[in-house]
Nucleic acid binder design. Structure first.
Length: 600
DNA sequence: GCCGTTTTCGGCCCGACTGTTTTCAGTCG
């Protein structure tokens, strides 16, 4: 599948054109890149079947780009792009990933200081050479250094959303081997942490060598870092796997084969977290037991002569048994951070956290009305396919012009389309009717007002409001701004409440305790945004919200139907924040859900 | 460079914010 490679090149061409100040073309190239990236079919197949005419049939692709795609499919290169690269061989992706640096600044940095990558830029900024450039200054230089520091902090870690699809693919492949009896990912992947360092698999097998051979020769393996009889380590190519469409770094994957009788203990051990395991081991020691990756053991026949104890395994094949034998209720992997879960498991007071199948609908989905990829009907069909009972269409409102935000009139027209779809019976399902809810994602303006008239909001089933501008507003003002929006009787949900983007930017400044108090008082729901780059609220904030009695909704913020699969990441985040089914409004059937919104 | 219920040209990608600039360019959502 060459789609992602081609999309990437088109995207870079857009950046080069932007650099030269060319109007409109960058937009066309970017649009084409997105079209190729979201294509379900292999571009190569489309070309083979229908030639260049078929390529031109893809929306956003015209004669010129189709020719370039053809050139790539035939020769593996696009001359037009190579020319740009010759003129400026900068690692563009790296440079423009720094907040505040775009194509034009990148060009000046290259031309004046011959800066090709982040390392060189950092050095130049530290020597105060950047501030002297035309169009730059003290503050820009400082921002660049801060931006680089932020990127360095998140370096070497990958978004769960980038990694999990690969993990599942590999897991399925291994599972299909007759030599593999048991398999599970371990480590932070199993704990569903928002970012992942590397991937671990545990396997039970009667023929470990066969499994090792298979593992090191899988497609995507670019380097074998080590291979023994029961343990192997490989570097996987992350080509085209980055959620942002960029190159992505390569990541490491380990596999180890353990004896069946130790599988549960090994799973426990390698799942971590380290802190959780240390606490667990302490409990074992207090009970006179020993816990390691091979099992839970009790001392047998302690000899008076001071000879070594004989250890007898009392648990280890099954992970749940390990916890049970230690006197703990089972702790779900997502909760194993030594943040009170062990104490609760000892007392038997662990909450029964929300399950991955408890979600009944997705309330934050964009349609083609606001520039999303799919029609309302397609989104609804996808929601049905996920087993949902309802979907909330939450198109952007007018302030977000670039996202084709809808004004009052367009929103009204969209509402009529939803009414028709709900009435025409096409979306009928076996046990009752599937329902499309009328929503929107309105903007909380800097003064806390909503960017669209209350009369328009009143006509909707529910309203999401979110901050999309003036992200650097000072803490107190930002807090007031959001609270003011929550006091609007039409606003039911606050989307991505802290605004962070993983690996790209920090949260905006808010007093979260004040937000929680206001949410509770105004019965406003806070969103857990499932987008792998957001996962906002984060686990700690989910837990604080739950403790404060604030309800949450787990939404995907899908701009395209496949993104509805992101729900898994949001549920994982909720689980990591100890949320129960009761805390999440979209676990409720439609009737009860409607009662959670402010208006009846 | 793409597109068309405005169809082969002319519109599309807007507006806020930041920082640098003295009248505006670049970045971001």
């Amino acid at each position: 599948m060459k789609n992602q490679e081609i999309a990437k090149i088109l995207h870079y061409i857009a950046q080069y054109l932007e650099m030269d100040g060319v109007a409109f073309k960058p937009f066309a190239y970017n649009k084409a890149a997105i079209a190729i990236n979201t294509l379900e079919e292999d571009v190569d197949d489309i070309y083979k079947k229908g030639g260049i005419k078929a390529l031109e049939g893809i929306p956003g692709i015209g004669q010129s780009i189709a020719q370039k795609i053809e050139e790539y499919l035939k020769t593996g290169k696009i001359k037009y792009y190579e020319e740009f690269r010759k003129k400026m061989p900068t690692n563009l992706e790296e440079i423009v990933s720094i907040e505040g640096v775009g194509p034009k600044k990148a060009k000046i940095l290259y031309q004046k200081l011959e800066i090709n990558n982040m390392k060189e830029l950092k050095k130049a900024a530290e020597l105060h050479r950047v501030a002297l450039l035309f169009g730059f200054g003290e503050k820009t230089e400082k921002n660049i250094l801060e931006g680089i520091a932020f990127l360095e902090r998140s370096k070497g870690r990958f978004l769960l959303g980038e990694i999990l699809p690969v993990v599942k693919e590999v897991q399925e492949k291994l599972k299909s081997l007759k030599e593999v009896e048991e398999i599970s990912p371990a480590g932070s992947v199993r704990r569903m942490k928002e970012t992942i360092g590397d991937v671990d698999f545990l396997v039970v097998s009667n023929n470990p060598e066969k499994v090792m051979d298979f593992f090191v020769s899988m497609p995507g393996v670019i380097k074998v870092l080590g291979k023994g009889p029961t343990k192997a380590s490989v570097r996987m190519s992350a080509q085209g796997r980055s959620a942002s469409g960029g190159k992505g770094q390569d990541f490491d994957m380990d596999i180890r084969v353990v004896p069946k009788k130790s599988y549960g203990a090994a799973l426990q051990y390698f799942t971590g977290s380290k802190e959780h395991n240390i606490s667990l081991r302490k409990i074992a020691i207090d009970k006179g037991l020993k816990l390691n990756e091979y099992g839970l053991f009790s001392a047998q026949g302690r000899s008076a002569s001071g000879k070594k104890n004989q250890w007898k395994q009392i648990a280890g094949e099954d992970e749940k048994e390990v916890y049970k034998a230690l006197g703990l209720s089972y702790v779900e992997p997502e909760m194993r951070e030594n943040k009170g879960e062990i104490e609760a498991a000892l007392k038997g007071t662990l909450p029964k956290i929300i399950g991955y199948n408890d979600i009944k609908g997705d309330l934050h989905c964009h349609s083609d009305w606001d520039g999303g990829e799919n029609s309302i009907e397609e989104m609804a069909e996808a929601a049905k396919g996920m087993g949902h009972e309802y979907i909330g269409i939450s198109d952007h409102t007018k302030f977000l012009k670039i996202e084709n935000g809808l004004d009052e009139r367009k929103l009204e027209q969209r509402n009529r389309e939803i009414d028709m779809l709900n009435l025409n019976g096409k979306l009928q399902v076996a046990d009752g009717k599937f329902k499309i809810l009328k929503g929107c994602e309105a903007n909380i303006l800097p003064d806390g007002l909503i960017d669209i008239k209350d009369e328009a909001l009143k006509k909707l089933d529910f309203v999401i409001a979110g901050v999309h501008s003036a992200l650097k507003t000072p803490k107190e003002k930002m807090t007031e701004r959001i609270i003011k929006a929550m006091r609007n009787p039409n606003v039911d949900i606050i989307s991505h409440p802290t605004g962070r983007i993983l690996k790209r930017r920090d949260e905006y400044q808010i007093d979260f305790d004040k937000i929680l108090r206001a949410a509770r008082e105004t019965k406003t729901i806070l969103e857990i945004n499932s987008c792998p780059e957001r996962l906002d609220l984060n686990d700690q904030n989910v837990r604080r919200a739950k403790e404060a009695g604030v309800k949450m909704a787990i939404n995907t913020d899908s701009h395209e139907k496949h993104q509805m699969r992101f729900m898994e990441f949001g549920v994982a985040q909720a689980r990591r924040g100890w949320a129960e089914k009761e805390d999440i409004v979209n676990t409720k059937p439609l009737n009860s859900l409607m009662g959670m919104f402010k208006k009846d």
